[in-house]
Each structure stands twice: as structure tokens, then as C-alpha cells.
Simulated scan of single mutants.
Amino acid sequence: MVEHLGVPEVHLLGHSHGGFVVQYHALHRPDRVAGVILYDSAPVTGPEHAAEAMRMVRSFAARYAGHPGLPEVLAAFQAIPTISDDVRMTAVARGLFPAYFADYWGREEEFAAMRAAVRAAHISGLDENLVPHAVDDRADLGSVTLPTLVVVGRHDVVCGVRWAEELHRLIPGSELLILEKSGHFGHIEEPDAFSRAVTRFVSSTARGTS
């Protein structure tokens, strides 16, 4: 991949599930990687991650109790186990959309068109033995030697602050940025703060810089 780009090193940014891909590279294929950005990611999947997500969903529901849009969001969460094709996946993703923002309904005019345009593909989370595929990198993250920036939205219900703080604690020398007015999409909700942090991190960790 790096050879095709014609550069000596790259920075890898992984958002959400993409964070697990970047963590894999940091742990197993760090050659020619100048640094990694784990953005709304986590060190683990599975029951523990799901329990934390449900805790955050309950917090979201309490924050917006009485809002007319809340029942649709909660129904979408309940429908997640029923997803079996792209059509259902798209419907659920649109239903969940407000929960992925710090204040979707306060900025609905800004984000409504984006929600209507959502298309989602259903990809099974089962391995070749039809068992849920789980990740747990916690025992290995202490061996990461690459410069690492961890970014998370304060109100992220999917991969929230608990996981960002754990990543930050486990990865030696890592930096942590919490976007206080964001959910799962800080690059959309707080684009200036997000871009400044990423630009500074990449500039400071590029080859030939201190």
C-alpha cells in the first residue's frame, strides 16, 4: 500500500470499527507507519462493549426524555438483532442516526439531509464457525511503540469516553482528545477542533520532525 503512494511513511486513521484495523497495524504491521489515530474506537468488542453501549443509550434516552423523535431511535436499537439484509440495515441506521450526534435535534436542519441519504450494507459479525467475532487487544496495547492520538466525542454512544480513556491508558505515550460537543461524528460536529488536532499530530510525528 505505502509503495503505491510513493511516500516513506503513512499515518493511519481509523474511525469506529476502522480503529480495530488501525490497532492491528500498530500491533502487527508497524513498518512504515509514522503514527496512528484511533478515532471513536475501543480496545475490545463483545459483551462488555455492548453493555457499555447500552449504558450510553440509556443516558441518551434520559437526556432526550419526552422528545417526539426518541421512540424511533429506541425502536431502531431494539431492531438491531433483526437485521439480515441491506434494506433493513439502512432503515435501522437511519433510525439510529440522532443517537450518533451530541445534539442532532438541536441541529436537525443541518443534519436531516445527511440522515435521509444514509445507505448501509449488512455485513455479518460471525466468523467461519458462525460464532460472533470478538476483539480484545487490551493485553497487547502496551507494546505499541507508534505515536498515537486517541480522539472521542463526549457523547458517543458507540465507542465512548470510557474506551478512549482505556486506550490512552494502555498505549504508552498516547495523546487523548475529547471533543466536548460531539457524539460519534466529531469531524462533522466540531470540524475545526478535529482537523486542528489531526493536522498538529500528523505534522509533529512526520518523518524528519520532532
Rank of each mutant, 00 (worst) to 15 (best):
R119M: 11
T90V: 10
S182T: 06
D140M: 12
M54F: 10
R207I: 05
S195D: 10
I123D: 01
S210A: 13
A65L: 13
A197V: 06
A134I: 13
E52Y: 05
S41N: 05
I83H: 00
G208W: 08
S16I: 03
T148K: 12
D140A: 15
H15V: 08
L12Y: 03
I37G: 02
H4Y: 05
R58N: 08
L74E: 01
T148F: 10
G186S: 09
H4N: 05
A53S: 12
L74H: 10
R32V: 07
A116H: 14
E48I: 12
V36C: 04
R88K: 15
A42M: 10
V10C: 02
I178T: 15
P191F: 11
L126W: 01
R119S: 12
D140R: 15
D40N: 15
D140E: 09
D140F: 11
S16M: 06
S203Q: 15
R196V: 11
R169Q: 14
A116F: 00
E48F: 08
V161E: 15
S174V: 09
F77P: 03
R29D: 05
A34M: 09
E128P: 01
L177I: 13
P68N: 07
A121R: 15
A117M: 09
R207N: 00
A34K: 05
R169I: 05
D85K: 06
S195H: 13
E190M: 11
V131I: 13
P30N: 09
S195E: 07
W163N: 10
H11N: 07
Y104T: 06
T145S: 14
L146S: 09
V87W: 02
L126Y: 05
A91Q: 15
K181F: 02
D103M: 02
F101G: 00
F77Q: 08
D127C: 10
M114E: 07
H67P: 00
E128S: 13
V118K: 07
F97P: 04
Y104R: 08
V7P: 00
P132F: 11
V73Q: 01
D31P: 04
A76V: 06
V73M: 05
D140W: 09
P191Q: 13
W105N: 13
M89N: 12
R207G: 03
G35D: 05
A93W: 02
V150N: 03
A99V: 10
E48S: 11
E52M: 07
V152Q: 04
A61R: 10
R88F: 01
V131W: 04
D31R: 14
S41A: 15
V157Y: 00
L170E: 01
A26Y: 02
A76D: 01
S16A: 14
S124F: 05
G125A: 11
A99N: 07
D85P: 00
L167P: 06
V73K: 04
G183T: 00
F201V: 06
E190N: 02
A139K: 15
E9S: 11
Q23I: 12
P47H: 04
S174H: 11
L146E: 03
L170I: 09
P191E: 10
W105K: 14
V158K: 13
A76K: 12
R63P: 02
A51H: 09
D86L: 13
Y64D: 00
E9V: 08
V7N: 03
A120G: 04
V158D: 00
E72K: 14
Y64L: 15
A113C: 02
L167Q: 03
M54S: 07
